[in-house]
């Protein structure tokens, strides 16, 4: 029992379950999932579908944070990805064809990779502090997206493109499938190979890692490229869902949600050990929270206050101090487990 109480995922999972039950109290059909036209429908599916972009971005963010970095530019990258693909589709001679959609997606993915590589270059080669290096792209990125769309909201009508964010496959929304696949592949790629441990090493002690022969530079670079890729795919989902590119508002504040998801999931911003499952739970908590606000009918003025309180409560429950009180584990009086926090 006490082992269960100490497990770092216990409280986030509990919080998620409680939130869902709270919704169920207010809306009796909340937890039910029904089949309609061969598609799954229901609030749970909605949460997953709306949360897919956040989950994806949080996935990339987890690895960046594990390497002792942070990526503030993901929202801007998502906006750019949406902008370039929609712009391509919009201006192509065959705006409705599958091939056009595929090319648009490919362009967006390449853009995401390139922007990620840019961040990685600034951090790992030039040695700029991650928060500032990515702040540059966060600031300039939305401007770039507007430049692409010339400040307009670009609407496209292409069924294939729309499928990414709003389509169904085997009864499930495609965006959920994409997020799940990304999640699974990342899990395999980092835990079946040595990549995960090496990222953690670099995050915990970069100097010692370099002296042990790790190519810390390449590893750091890789995680930013990956984060850029995740952000681009998330950006495609967002713009495809509304069949338009909105350079100003697409993915606004998504970086904060993603970071929040990572931390609620138990990964320290000081770098080092990470948990992908934790991030998933964290992202779901955040998405459920948004849904809860509507279900409960919280007045719009108080939405942020409500969100703040839930975040604090989840973090309090999860904090090692609170867990100590609960499980009466003895601990050193001083010596914090990770003395330094590098954002």
């Amino acid at each position: 029992m006490s082992a269960l109480l100490r497990h770092r995922l216990t409280w986030p999972v509990l919080a998620l379950v409680l939130l869902l039950l709270l919704n169920q109290l207010f809306r009796a059909d909340f937890l039910s999932v029904r089949v309609q036209d061969g598609h799954l429908y229901g609030s749970l599916i909605d949460i997953l579908r709306n949360g897919a972009p956040t989950i994806l971005i949080a996935l990339g963010m987890t690895l960046v944070i594990a390497s002792r970095g942070i990526d503030l530019s993901v929202g801007a990258v998502a906006a750019i990805a949406g902008a370039v693909s929609c712009m391509y589709i919009y201006s192509s001679p065959e705006p409705a064809s599958l091939q056009t959609a595929a090319t648009g997606v490919a362009i967006a993915v390449v853009a995401g990779l390139a922007l990620g590589a840019w961040n990685g270059f600034l951090v790992s080669v030039i040695g700029i502090q991650p928060i500032i290096a990515t702040l540059v792209l966060m600031t300039a990125g939305r401007g770039l997206a507007q430049l692409v769309t010339d400040g307009q909201i670009i609407s496209v009508s292409n069924d294939s493109y729309q499928a990414i964010g709003a389509g169904y496959f085997l009864g499930l929304p495609i965006s959920i499938l994409i997020a799940a696949a990304a999640f699974g592949i990342t899990g395999l790629l980092t835990r079946r190979t040595a990549l995960g441990t090496l990222i953690e090493s670099v995050g915990i002690n970069p100097v010692a890692s370099r002296l042990s022969g790790l190519d810390a530079r390449t590893i750091t670079w890789t995680v930013y490229v990956f984060s850029g890729l995740c952000a681009a795919v998330a950006g495609l989902m967002i713009s495809s869902n509304v069949t338009a590119a909105d350079a100003n508002n697409a993915g606004l504040y998504i970086e904060m949600d993603a970071i929040l998801a990572v931390v609620i999931g138990g990964t320290s911003l000081a770098g080092g050990r990470y948990s992908l499952v934790g991030t998933l739970v964290g992202a779901l908590i955040i998405q459920t929270l948004t849904t809860t606000v509507y279900t409960l009918g919280v007045p719009p003025e108080a939405t942020l206050v409500f969100k703040a309180l839930v975040v604090i409560i989840v973090c309090l429950l999860q904090s090692s101090r609170a867990r100590t009180l609960l499980s009466r584990r003895r601990r050193p009086v001083t010596e914090p487990s990770r003395p330094k926090v590098a954002a």
Binding site: R192, T193, A194, T197, L198, A208, S212, R338
Partner: peptide, 29 residues
Amino acid sequence: KEEGLIGDLSVRDNLILALQAGKGWWRRV
């Protein structure tokens, strides 16, 4: 402390770190 230990990793991970670094990330020991 500064140039050797990866404090938050296990003894096992610390032991094989240099070997793993040599093999690259793809070929996990």
